[in-house]
């Protein structure tokens, strides 16, 4: 009995294909983050799933997320040199869960006209009412560099929102993606990472993570990249389905080391109780079950707030055509 796949164990990635695989392991990026220490909570040899307690210690939980998109790529010639640029829109938004109600908090929409090779437009470009692009510059003309420039702005906007929210006493801020900032604030900010980068862990730890039951977390580990030192842990927010990849429903969370080990442990336990409740049912979100309901809501909300992409693309096109005709 070899079955359809022979000796291979084939499982399905839970995310919709356009979001890429959830498991980003295999080829570590250049700046691979190496776990500094795996035994800050318990020694690696005694790693076992930690079942969540019952109490949720926060009066309010705020989610922060951002989205970005390229509205139009442009080709730029300057001094007989060709380079590339991009008109892009980014947005950061929040959802606050408090007193049994979820509400949209503040949101920021920004637009930038990014020119490659260190070039920059002379000033803001207004394409239509409520659509103005600020001039920006990227060191290279590669599309990823242009996107990165946009993403940096988005991260800054996210960070600003997260800081404002984290200042409220008794509030937990959950920021989508790895923590970009580690400064202290009155409340805690936890980074919520959906894609799995397993090079943080040795094989026995990976096995433990894969075997986590729903609502259970791994012990804490310390992670360092540059100046940023964080506590991190894995959590299963939803049970896997038959045929699911072993990491389906697993997310990684991180918090600045500055909060202290005890606080980090309390945060980890609290998240283990709280977050599985917010996992979206399969089929309701392309990245279910790991894209939490409030985060999915922020993304949809922001994509809508950024304006209709076709309309804006046409606006940019019209503007540039008009400018070209005008010059002739």
């Amino acid at each position: 009995m070899t079955g359809l796949f022979g000796p291979l164990q084939v499982t399905i990635e839970p995310w919709a294909a356009e979001y890429g695989p959830q498991w980003r392991g295999g080829a570590p990026p250049e700046e691979a983050e190496v776990p500094e220490a795996l035994d800050v909570e318990v020694p690696l040899a005694r790693w076992a799933p930690i079942a969540a307690g019952a109490a949720i210690p926060w009066s309010a939980v705020a989610f922060v997320d951002g989205v970005r998109r390229i509205d139009a790529f442009v080709a730029i010639s300057a001094d007989d040199r060709m380079t590339r640029g991009a008109f892009g829109t980014y947005a950061a938004g929040t959802v606050v869960l408090r007193g049994g109600a979820a509400t949209f908090g503040p949101a920021v929409i920004g637009r930038a006209a990014v020119c490659g090779d260190g070039l920059s437009l002379p000033g803001p470009v207004t394409v239509m009412r409520a659509v103005t692009y600020e001039p920006a510059s990227a060191p290279s003309a590669d599309p990823p560099a242009l996107v990165h420039s946009l993403e940096t702005r988005m991260r800054v906007a996210e960070e600003r929102l997260a800081r404002e929210l984290a200042d409220a006493p008794g509030a937990l801020v959950l920021a989508d993606g790895p923590l970009a900032f580690v400064e202290r604030s009155k409340g805690a900010t936890v980074g919520y990472v959906k894609s799995i980068e397993e090079w943080h862990l040795p094989a026995e730890a990976v096995r433990l993570v894969h075997s986590l039951p729903p609502g259970a977390r791994s012990p804490l580990a310390v992670l360092q990249s540059g100046r940023r030192i964080r506590y991190t842990w894995f959590l299963r927010v939803a049970p896997p389905w038959p045929g699911d990849a072993p990491f389906a429903g697993i997310v990684r969370l991180e918090v600045s080391q500055a909060v202290g080990l005890d606080a980090a442990r309390r945060l980890a336990d609290g998240c283990a109780v709280f977050l599985p409740r917010l996992a979206p049912p399969r089929g309701t979100d392309p990245r279910a079950p790991s894209n939490l309901l409030p985060i999915g809501a922020i993304e949809r909300h922001l994509r809508h707030r950024m304006g209709d992409p076709r309309l804006i693309h046409r606006g940019i096109q019209t503007l540039i055509v008009r400018e070209a005709v005008h010059r002739v």
């Binding site: 007193g99 509400t103 949209f104 049912p281 309701t284 909300h301």
Partner: peptide
């Protein structure tokens, strides 16, 4: 507004999903 699924009403009511 923006609710995609019938179940969203329950999620909004439970305070898990924001909706206008």
């Amino acid at each position: 507004e923006g609710a995609q699924f019938d179940g969203d009403a329950f999620r909004v009511e439970a305070g898990m999903l924001p909706a206008e």
